[in-house]
Design a protein around this nucleic acid. Structure first.
Lengths: 149, 149
DNA sequence: ATATTCTCGACTAACTTGGTCGAGTATAGC
DNA sequence: GCTATACTCGACCAAGTTAGTCGAGAATAT
């Protein structure tokens, strides 16, 4: 159905959470899970992936937890999502590694999707985790004064 | 993984096939399947869906087969794909029916994907099955003179 | 030592994808 | 009305992905 899975959703929310609540020391997985409403044992896998790809680093033991591995404004949404979801190419033949392009099939649609894919990546590159965190901060402030949604 | 499935691929290719080889009478499912390299019994389901949504009509019995239900230049790629794949919204909360928007979660990313989704639909609306068929015709002509790909 | 926190792999249920198959229905032509 | 042709429809199935759970183990602060 061509949809982003919860991996990308949860994982990016974890990064945003770290951007907001990190800063003074590591944040525990259990805290992120509670705040973002993500099953902790599932979040475990997502953080592992983000660690492997250099988005977060972690320390064990009491007082340990997770931190962003680099500044939030140097992390774009595209790369975070690609880490969590794999390639976002809407067609396999648009993948970067696609040397064995079986573009013979569905070649007709290919050019349309190529443009859409390029445009999508351009937009996702222009948004950083810091941008998303800023929006989230505003939303959190608004919630304290608003009636409930 | 956020990818178009073979339903959209096969189904659109079937429509293109009908746009090219229809015109003088119905085209048999077996012919489409052979030309487009699609398992015939699978194509059956896709044509059923396209029939339900008014893209093709069919006649039974000897000499029967499938035809486009309306001119190919009045069928846009977006609607064909939506018939075959369901909504192309990258997030459930972007779906048209999403009244129960649980946009509280992942609200941070939502605006980005909203723009991407709008842009995607705009582009897919601008392309008709007739456009795709024309490209395919050119490709078929080229193949007769080219060395093999 | 011990409690805390992350790490890693195995396992699972539900769902989607990409089909296959067979019984049934409509129809053209004789 | 028979028969061959062609579509129709639902049941079924294997493989892969998603969205988890669980438990044993490793690192570390006190």
């Amino acid at each position: 159905m061509m949809r982003l899975s919860t991996k990308g959703d949860y994982g990016v929310r974890a990064l945003i959470d770290l951007a907001i609540f990190g800063g003074d020391g590591p944040v525990q997985r259990s805290e992120i899970a509670r705040r973002q409403q993500i099953p902790e044992s599932y979040l475990d896998h997502l953080l592992a992936q983000l660690r492997r790809d250099g988005f977060v680093r972690s320390t064990r033991g009491p007082g340990g937890g997770h931190e962003l591995a680099r500044p939030a404004d140097e992390m774009c949404l595209l790369h975070a999502l690609e880490s969590l979801e794999g390639s976002l190419a809407p067609l396999a033949c648009l993948e970067d590694e696609a040397e064995d392009h079986e573009h013979s099939v569905l070649c007709g649609q290919q050019w349309v999707w190529r443009e859409i894919y390029d445009e999508t990546r351009r937009r996702l590159t222009a948004v950083s985790i810091a941008d998303l965190a800023e929006r989230e901060r505003q939303r959190l402030r608004a919630r304290t004064t608003n009636y409930t949604i």
